[in-house]
Design a protein around this nucleic acid. Structure first.
Length: 152
DNA sequence: GCCAACGTTGGC
DNA sequence: GCCAACGTTGGC
């Protein structure tokens, strides 16, 4: 089992939006970065767990936990001209972009702010605390996962 | 294949 | 809203 951190802007799609879905499950659409696509497509497995992270907000940080419940399949928003994720270069016969389905597991008892993560010597190597990290999905080691939960 | 220009991300 | 970081695009 692997661990991940998945970023989303709460103004666009926050953890409360996921909780409001039927089965508290939704697809993670809109990934338009090749590195992230490759991780999602090649490495993410059903049963993996991920931190749900709120970015671009007053207090960015980890707010909850989700689980991968469906492995990568084509991101159909790439073919929808009405979607803001529309990509005319994605050929339905050879999909360029992929998404997974995630299910809400729980909220953390409190938000663990990016600032706090940065203060932890044990988390120096965590991708999300590194300068200039713009990937919306990053891997988390088991040690990092446990450490974050210990801060809750 | 280089690289400047441009666009996006996301913390602050 | 600013701007640093960095990915993508496209001319050459």
């Amino acid at each position: 089992m692997q661990y991940w951190l998945m970023k989303s802007e709460p103004d666009v799609y926050g953890i409360d939006d996921l909780m409001a879905q039927p089965d508290q499950t939704d697809h993670w659409d809109g990934v338009r970065n090749y590195q992230v696509r490759n991780m999602m497509r090649d490495q993410m497995k059903v049963g993996d767990q991920a931190f749900f992270y709120h970015s671009n907000t007053k207090v960015p940080g980890i707010v909850g936990i989700v689980e991968i419940v469906r492995e990568a399949y084509p991101d159909f928003t790439a073919w929808d001209p009405e979607s803001k994720y529309y990509d005319p270069k994605s050929d339905p016969d050879k999909p360029r972009w992929f998404m997974v389905d995630v299910r809400f597991v729980r909220k953390l008892r409190r938000v663990i702010a990016l600032q706090e993560l940065r203060e932890q010597p044990e988390l120096q190597d965590m991708k999300v605390v590194q300068k200039g990290c713009r990937l919306s999905i990053t891997p988390v080691t088991e040690a990092q996962w446990r450490h974050v939960l210990g801060m809750e």
